[in-house]
Structures are given as structure tokens and as C-alpha cells.
């Protein structure tokens, strides 16, 4: 097993422990019943998605400053993993909403802004797919990634700025009993580890794809197989 495989196995193991904590350690909510257990992964994956989009933002800013191919690859990896976690957040939230609100979807500020977030970063991935890989596309994507991040604080503060159905912040407002808080913090930690491992693995895939493109373009490879990052493809 190489290092990435070990990391992936570790992240999956952590998620299984988190699942055990969610179902066996955390108490059942008095009002909502078992459906409240969705909360732990729902909020954790939202935070993981924000983290991934922060990687896209940082990668974009660094790329615009010095055209570092590594920064661009991190941005690509972050966008993909962030879209996955945003989807998880939305789907779990909809399952919860079906039980608690009686409808999968309401046009609420937080739901709507999260959907917009998903669309923005799905658009980011489309930009990368629809235009030829290279310097130009990386710059365009960096601008899209930086602008797209505006929606992250909107999603976060939407429950304060607008009157929403969505529950407000329960973590920062100290509203959780200690066992629930511990379960949540542990789940969040595991989810963040999982997201980080996924970003790193995706980074590796993006690097291999860059190398493949570099070889296909007929560029001479001075180093036999670069252990470090190859030069940007033009």
C-alpha cells in the first residue's frame, strides 16, 4: 500500500467510527427523533465543502500571482471535491427537510444560496472541461473560482441575514448538549480529514493527467519520471 492508499483507508475508517458515534453514542433528539442524526454529517460536509472552495480561492489567487501549476491543480482538486460535499449536504438536508418540514425543498435563503454554490462550482468544472487545458483556461478558472467564493459567506450568514426556515447556528450559540457536541465535532474532524485526503488524491490524478498531456504534446522529458511537479503545459 502506498501512502495515498493508507491515507484513504484511514479516512474511511475514521468515517466509520464517526458513523458509529452518530448512531450509538449521540442521544436521540427529543423533538425531531432519529432524523436529527442527519445533522452531524450534513453540517460537517457543508463545512468540508467551504474548506474545499477556500482551496479553490487560494489556488486561484496564487495562480494569478505566479502561474504556479501546483496552485492550479489544487484549485481543480478542491472544486471537484467541494462539489461532491455540497451535493452530499444538499441531499442530506433534503432528506431531513422531507421529514421535519414535510417537503424536500423550500425556497429558503440558505437552501437557495447553497444550490447557487453548487451551480457556480459545477460551472467551474464545466469551464475546465469545455476549454482546452492550458494557461488561458487556468486564468479563467481562477477568476471564476475567486468570484464564486463570494457565495460562501452568503450561504454561511444567510440564516442571520434573512428570515429562513433553516435552523440557525447551534454550535456557536451553545445550544447542543455535550454528547451531541462531541459527536458533531468528531464527525466534522473526520469529514475534514476525508475531504483533505480526497483533495490530495485528486491532486495526484490531475498531476498525472498534466503529465500525460505533456507527453502527448511531444515535449522532451528531461527527467525520466518527475517525482515532483512537471512544468505547465502551454
Amino acid at each position: 500500500m502506498n501512502r495515498l492508499e493508507k491515507a484513504a483507508a484511514g479516512a474511511v475508517a475514521l468515517m466509520l467510527i464517526a458513523a458509529a458515534a452518530i448512531f450509538f453514542y449521540a442521544p436521540t433528539d427529543y423533538l425531531q427523533g432519529p432524523v436529527q442524526r442527519i445533522f452531524y454529517l450534513h453540517v460537517s460536509s457543508a463545512i468540508a465543502a467551504f474548506g474545499c472552495f477556500a482551496v479553490v480561492l487560494a489556488g486561484g489567487i496564487v495562480y494569478l500571482r505566479n502561474e504556479s501549476p501546483r496552485a492550479d491543480r489544487y484549485a481543480r482538486a478542491g472544486a471537484l471535491v467541494g462539489v461532491v460535499f455540497t451535493t452530499v449536504t444538499l441531499v442530506m438536508g433534503m432528506l431531513w427537510a422531507r421529514k421535519v418540514w414535510g417537503a424536500f425543498w423550500v425556497w429558503d435563503a440558505r437552501l437557495t444560496s447553497t444550490l447557487v454554490l453548487l451551480i457556480i462550482y459545477a460551472g467551474y468544472l464545466l469551464v475546465r472541461r469545455l476549454s482546452e487545458a492550458g494557461r488561458q483556461t487556468a486564468r479563467i478558472a481562477a477568476v471564476v473560482g475567486i468570484f464564486g467564493f463570494i457565495d460562501v459567506p452568503v450561504v454561511y450568514f444567510s440564516v442571520d441575514w434573512w428570515a429562513t426556515h433553516h435552523p440557525g447556528p447551534v454550535i456557536t450559540s451553545d445550544a447542543l448538549p455535550p454528547q451531541m457536541l462531541a459527536t458533531f465535532l468528531f464527525t466534522m474532524l473526520c469529514t475534514l480529514v476525508l475531504a483533505a485526503v480526497m483533495v490530495v488524491i485528486r491532486y495526484r490524478i490531475e498531476m498525472l493527467m498534466d503529465m500525460k498531456q505533456l507527453i502527448a504534446s511531444g515535449a522532451p522529458l528531461t527527467v525520466a519520471i518527475p517525482r515532483r511537479d512537471p512544468e505547465p503545459a502551454q
Binding site: V116, I119, I120, G123, L126, V127, L130, S131, E132, Q136, T137, I140, V143, V144, F147, G148, I150, D151, V154
Partner: peptide, 26 residues
């Protein structure tokens, strides 16, 4: 801005709405 962004991209007609519409929502 996004018209300039997509100006030199192959599928620009496809991309412009995808990029601009979400940012116009505010």
C-alpha cells in the same frame, strides 16, 4: 467581465450563461 473571460474559449455561448447567471442572482 465574464464575456471577456469566455471570449477566447471554444464553447463560449454555452459557458457565459452558466457562469454569469448564478452571479447575477443577487
Amino acid at each position: 467581465l465574464f464575456a471577456a473571460v469566455v471570449a477566447r474559449v471554444r464553447a463560449r455561448e454555452l459557458l457565459l450563461p452558466l457562469l454569469v447567471l448564478p452571479l447575477w442572482i443577487p
